[in-house]
């Protein structure tokens, strides 16, 4: 195989159909950019889940009178609730937080905000904070055990709050993947079309090649490489787009919740992790589409 010959043919082909080539590159880039966004969303979801799995607790808030009178959970009502919780299946540990420490945590959390000044220790309930050993069934068991329990105000599963965030991230992921799929179909058709046009504009060359006994590889490879080159360029543009998007939009959009530790930030390393995947998808899909097109539609 003469590499210089194939390279020359590829270059000529790309230049000759330059408008088609650009269309193909852009469609591929958008499609892969969306795939990349989806992959980053998946990664963020995984990271966030990790972040929360050891922090999420179920809070059992005590009624106002119990909260006010009992500061170390030694009195009958609180102790009963606590031992009941400790005996519940799926519970790892139970920790008591009295009004004063709740107040201190609150002050720290909302430091510098007017909310912090409005709150008095008495307005916050004392809570029993439950860590689960069984993340799946534990919360339900706690809820059941606390139903109609004397001294209990309500039960808050922090995961209910967090799951809203997961739902949002999951939604982002699903939408981007769906858009990526639609774009991918457009990209496939464009690749197929471009290969056909390319083969048509070079039919004289291909005719001569067949005539003088060039092997199938020699006649087909330039077209395949052309498709792969555009696929790879598309992927690289997509990666560039992701990096630009990170610095221009995502960073400022997420800055608040990232600095509070609600979600992990999207790092350059994440995008570097995504890029080879995008390049492989771009090159692979272009090659497969090109090959099938040549087989089905183009007589070489």
């Amino acid at each position: 195989m003469r590499a210089d010959f194939v390279a020359r043919e590829v270059f000529t082909g790309l230049r000759r159909n330059v408008t088609m080539t650009i269309a193909m590159v852009l469609t591929t880039a958008i499609s892969l950019g969306l795939v990349g966004t989806g992959l980053l969303a998946v990664r963020t979801i995984d990271r966030t889940e990790e972040l929360y799995s050891d922090r999420v607790e179920v809070q059992v808030a005590l009624t106002a009178d119990v909260s006010a009178s009992d500061t170390d959970c030694t009195q009958a009502i609180c102790a009963a609730v606590k031992s009941r919780l400790e005996g519940t299946q799926g519970v790892e540990s139970v920790r008591f937080e009295n009004q004063q420490s709740a107040y201190e945590r609150y002050q720290k959390l909302f430091a510098g905000q007017t909310l912090a000044d409005l709150v008095r220790p008495q307005s916050l309930p004392a809570t029993l904070r439950v860590r689960l050993s069984d993340q799946a069934a534990g919360a339900q068991a706690v809820r059941q055990a606390m139903t109609d329990q004397v001294g209990v105000h309500n039960v808050i599963d922090q995961r209910d709050v967090v799951s809203k965030l997961f739902d949002f991230l999951g939604g982002v992921r699903n939408v981007t993947f769906a858009l990526a799929l639609v774009q991918a179909i457009a990209a496939l058709l464009l690749i197929s079309n471009t290969v056909q046009v390319s083969a048509f504009t070079r039919r004289t060359e291909v005719g001569v090649m067949r005539l003088v006994g060039a092997t199938r590889w020699y006649t087909q490879l330039p077209f395949l490489i052309e498709a792969v080159v555009t696929g790879v360029i598309g992927a690289l543009i997509a990666v560039g787009g992701l990096i630009t998007g990170k610095f221009l939009f995502i960073d400022s959009l997420l800055s608040g919740i990232v600095s509070n530790g609600v979600v992990p930030p999207i790092e350059i390393a994440d995008i570097i992790w995504v890029s080879p995947i995008l390049v492989m998808i771009g090159a692979g899909i272009a090659a497969i589409t090109g090959y099938i097109t040549l087989r089905l539609y183009v007589r070489l």
């Binding site: 004289t204 001569v208 090649m209 005539l211 003088v212 060039a214 092997t215």
Partner: peptide
């Protein structure tokens, strides 16, 4: 080897390029 009534030369290649093409594509 094949020769036709309509020559079938590649219009964007030189004379030498046309002849060389037949050898290049068979490696």
């Amino acid at each position: 080897g094949c020769v036709f009534q309509d020559f079938r030369l590649l219009p964007n290649k030189t004379v030498g390029g046309n002849v060389a093409f037949a050898l290049e594509v068979i490696g």
